[in-house]
Amino acid sequence: MALGGYPPELHFLADLGIELDAGHHPHTVARLPVTPHLLGLDGGVHAGVLATLVDIVGGSIAMRAVHPDWMVTADMSLQVVRPAVGQVVEARGSILRQGRTTLVVEVEVFDETSDDRPVAWSVLSFAVLPLANGDRAAVDLQSLPSSTVFGIPGLDQHLLDVLSIASGDQPDTLAMPIDQYVRNSIGAVQGGVVALLAEVAAARAVAASLQTAAPVVSTDLQITYLATGRIGPLVARVRSVTADPASASGRGIVDLVDTGADDRLAAVVAVGAMTW
């Protein structure tokens, strides 16, 4: 159990065993114990899992910074520059800019093999939602511990299987149900899961386009969140794929639609994928 009752006990964030520490002003740090169930085809932690860690750090920073107002993630960019192969990955975030309506946070991700060189780098933008009369009460910051552990690592199979991510009913699509296990504190699908679904769909499409047997993994994510995914299934549709065999890399544009809400477009994700 962590911040104001979130995440609940049966939640993927709890099963990841993430530890969040906001007591390093001006930095907030989150650590993720790496298990085989979080790894991609290259043996490194999935970019979408790194995005989840980044989202938690960014969200924690933003929540405290805009208090008593609330906020939502508007966009996230993430570049993975080498596979995260250590036993723990650590994300360190700080505020780049705080304005009246937006907040921009920078997050670096390290593993213990990095020698202070990041394995990934991210920038997140948050939209500030003013707390109006009649809204839910503001979070009581004083009641929040500066350090918290979301749970203990509890995955007994690969995260993609735990999340029931499976091929959709059309080519180049992946689908995932939305339930309490992946909802965030406002009842929408957690932003990192959105990233994971998109990056896996794009990497598969790029691999098919490259016609390679080598492991293709996503390294670059540029996510624009447009609406909350609340009903599901959430479906990732890869609508544009390009591949460059010379550099063994490619790019996919992924629409994330909430098929239970009249195919509402929840996010658009540009994904870069490659073989190391």
């Binding site: 570049q79 520059v81 080498r82 060189r117 990041p118 394995v119 780098w121 390294t219 460059d244 550099s247 063994a248 890399s249 870069g272 490659m274 073989t275 190391w276």
Partner: peptide, 12 residues
Amino acid sequence: VLGRRPDGTVAR
């Protein structure tokens, strides 16, 4: 320079 990858060098 954040890192060098087969598809290019990533810089902040």
